[in-house]
C-alpha cells in the first residue's frame, strides 16, 4: 500500500516561497493524495464515447449564446493598488546603486540633480493616505527664503537661524509700498501679530499664500526653531500607492544618503503604523535620480561579494545592520525573506 502513495507534483510546486506571504499557501501541511503513481495516463480523454457530441466548430457560438442568455458576469473590482511579486528581480546594495547613478549623471550639476526615493505600498485604493513632513539628517533643499516679523531678542535669533529678512514696523511699511516679495515663507512672532493684523497686509500677502496665520503654523512663539524646521523639512505624500521624495543631492556622500534613507524609511514605517484599522505595508523601496534608471534596494549598504571586509569601518557595519533592521519592523513578510536571502 505504501508503495502506491505519491505526492502530487503540482501541489509541491505551488508551495514555493513568495513575497506575498499572506496569499501563499501554508507550507506546514504538505498535501498528500491517495492516488496510484500511474494515475496521470488515466486522465487522458478516452478514445470513444457513448454520449452525443456537439458539432465541431460550434463551441464558440454556443458559449457566446450562453453568455447573453445568462446574466453578464460583473468585472471584479480591485480594492487595492496592484503590487507585484518582485522576489525574482535583482536587488542592489545602496553603494552599487549609487555607483551606477553617478555614472548616469556624469557631467550634470551635482547640486541640481537629486536622488529620488520611491516606496511602493500595499494599500487600499480608498483608504486614508499618508501625508507628512520630515527633517532629514542632511537637508536636501536649503535655499528657502524666509522673512520674519519680530522685535528685540527674537529678531536677533531669527537672523542667526538664517532668515533672509528680519524686521518690524519698517518692514511692514516697505511691503505696503510695494517692495519685492522674494520670499518663500513669512513668519510672525506672536507678540507682533496684532500689529500685523492692523496693517491690512492680507491683500498683498494673501494671494501669494504668504500671510502668517496661527492655522498654518507661521505665527510662533519661538522663531528660531520654526525657521530651522522650515529650512530642512521636506514634505511627502502617498499618491496611487506610492510615496516619492527627493532624498539627497547628488553631491552627498554615500554615508549621508544612507542616513537620509534610513531616517525616512523609519519615520515612514511609523506613519504607516499610526493608521490603525487599515493594513498598510511597504512592498518595495526604489532609488533613482533625475536622469537615471531606478534601482530596487536590497536594504544593505554595500555588497561584500569579492571584497575584503575592513576592520576600521565597524561603525559603518553597525549602521548597515540598522538599515537592514528598519524595513523588517515594518514589513515582516518581506523582512523574513530578506533574512533568508542574507
Amino acid at each position: 500500500m505504501a508503495s502506491s502513495l505519491s505526492i502530487c507534483r503540482s501541489c509541491l510546486a505551488r508551495s514555493a516561497p513568495s513575497t506575498l506571504l499572506r496569499f501563499a499557501p501554508s507550507t506546514s501541511t504538505p498535501r498528500l493524495r491517495l492516488l496510484p503513481a500511474t494515475y496521470a495516463p488515466l486522465t487522458l480523454s478516452p478514445c470513444f464515447s457513448t454520449t452525443p457530441k456537439p458539432l465541431a466548430g460550434g463551441g464558440a457560438i454556443n458559449r457566446a449564446k450562453a453568455r447573453t442568455s445568462k446574466q453578464v458576469k460583473k468585472k471584479k473590482v480591485k480594492t487595492h493598488f496592484k503590487i507585484w511579486n518582485h522576489a525574482d528581480s535583482p536587488k542592489f546594495a545602496l553603494m552599487d546603486a549609487i555607483r551606477y547613478i553617478r555614472a548616469f549623471e556624469v557631467g550634470n550639476d551635482q547640486r541640481q540633480m537629486k536622488y529620488d526615493l520611491a516606496i511602493k505600498i500595499h494599500t487600499l485604493k480608498n483608504g486614508p493616505t499618508v501625508k507628512s513632513r520630515i527633517q532629514l539628517p542632511k537637508a536636501v533643499k536649503t535655499d528657502v527664503r524666509i522673512c520674519v516679523f519680530a522685535e528685540g531678542k527674537q529678531a536677533e535669533a531669527a537672523r542667526q537661524a538664517g532668515a533672509v529678512a528680519v524686521g518690524s514696523t519698517e518692514l511692514l511699511e516697505e511691503i505696503k509700498n510695494g517692495a519685492d516679495l522674494n520670499y518663500d515663507r513669512i513668519i510672525c512672532h506672536t507678540n507682533f501679530f496684532p500689529t500685523l493684523q492692523k496693517a491690512n497686509l492680507g491683500r498683498v500677502l494673501g494671494p501669494k499664500g504668504l500671510m502668517p496665520s496661527p492655522k498654518t503654523g507661521t505665527v510662533v512663539g519661538d522663531v528660531s526653531t520654526a525657521i530651522q524646521a522650515m529650512i530642512g523639512a521636506s514634505e511627502y505624500r502617498e499618491r496611487q500607492g506610492v510615496v516619492r521624495i527627493a532624498i539627497a543631492q547628488l553631491s552627498f556622500t554615500p554615508e549621508e544618503v544612507r542616513d537620509n534613507v534610513k531616517a525616512f524609511v523609519e519615520q515612514f514605517g511609523k506613519d504607516l503604523a499610526r493608521i490603525e484599522d487599515f493594513d498598510k505595508r511597504i512592498n518595495e523601496v526604489v532609488l533613482s535620480s533625475t536622469n537615471s534608471p531606478a534601482f530596487s534596494l536590497s536594504g544593505e549598504f554595500r555588497s561584500d561579494v569579492g571584497k575584503i571586509p575592513e576592520v576600521s569601518e565597524a561603525a559603518a557595519a553597525e549602521a548597515e545592520a540598522a538599515i537592514i533592521n528598519s524595513p523588517i519592523q515594518v514589513d515582516e513578510a518581506a523582512g523574513a525573506e530578506k533574512m533568508v536571502a542574507l
Partner: peptide, 16 residues
C-alpha cells in the same frame, strides 16, 4: 510605478 519585470528588462540592457 511600472512592474518590476518591465523595469528590469530595460535596466539590464542599460547596465550592460
Amino acid at each position: 510605478m511600472p512592474s518590476p519585470t518591465a523595469r528590469y528588462r530595460w535596466l539590464r540592457a542599460q547596465l550592460h
